[in-house]
């Protein structure tokens, strides 16, 4: 946990510097404006567009320095902790759950929301939850069906269907 604390503080510090740099970006349509011209007061306009995000990002950077100081002095709980940032269970869980979510998102682009939903629920309930096939299939099939009638039919919000689109055309003919 101690190492994670300082690594995170450094990463967040770098992000803060990037945000300060980005806040001072001049508008693309006006090449005459120099970087950071927008972080102070502009005559007749008040504070420029980069004023608020720039100074807040600076405060973020200062906070990261303080987090680093507290880490050095071992005065914050994570900087005193010998526990791992993620224990083996946590790592495995994150890989399985996070991986499942990324897989779900990727599948949406291929087989759409309903196909992805079915595959994700099948994976989660059967593989991670060790539920019976009866329970798994009832949830994995039931949820996409309920969602389809709720979103596509009643709310008329068409969720992406990817390559499974032709399968839904007869359903549209019947219900819409």
């Amino acid at each position: 946990m101690r190492r994670a604390e300082i690594v995170t503080a450094v990463v967040l510090g770098i992000i803060s510097i990037y945000l300060m740099w980005k806040s001072g970006e001049p508008p693309a349509w006006d090449p005459d404006v120099v970087r950071f011209a927008n972080i102070g007061m502009i005559e007749g306009e008040g504070p420029g567009s980069g004023f608020w995000p720039f100074w807040l990002s600076l405060v973020m950077l200062i906070c990261c320095i303080f987090i680093g100081v507290n880490w050095y002095r071992r005065s914050s709980p994570p900087s005193q902790s010998d526990e791992p940032f993620l224990d083996p269970y946590g790592k495995k869980m994150l890989l399985q759950v996070g991986g499942g979510l990324i897989g779900f998102l990727a599948l949406i682009h291929v087989v759409g929301f309903y196909g992805g939903m079915f595959a994700f629920l099948l994976y989660y309930l059967r593989h991670l939850g060790r539920h019976s096939w009866k329970q798994t299939l009832s949830v994995a099939v039931g949820m996409p069906i309920i969602s389809f009638f709720f979103f596509d039919i009643s709310m008329r919000i068409v969720l992406p269907k990817g390559y499974l689109e032709p399968l839904f055309i007869p359903l549209y003919d019947i219900f819409l």
């Binding site: 759950v97 539920h131 919000i157």
Partner: peptide, 25 residues
């Protein structure tokens, strides 16, 4: 109700809910 049923349902609701609100992947 086991959390292994509730958690995936919440994940699904979260993803679908955000897409339904803005229709932007």
């Amino acid at each position: 109700m086991p959390f292994t049923i509730l958690a995936p349902l919440i994940f699904v609701l979260s993803l679908v809910g955000v897409f339904a609100a803005y229709q932007d992947m």
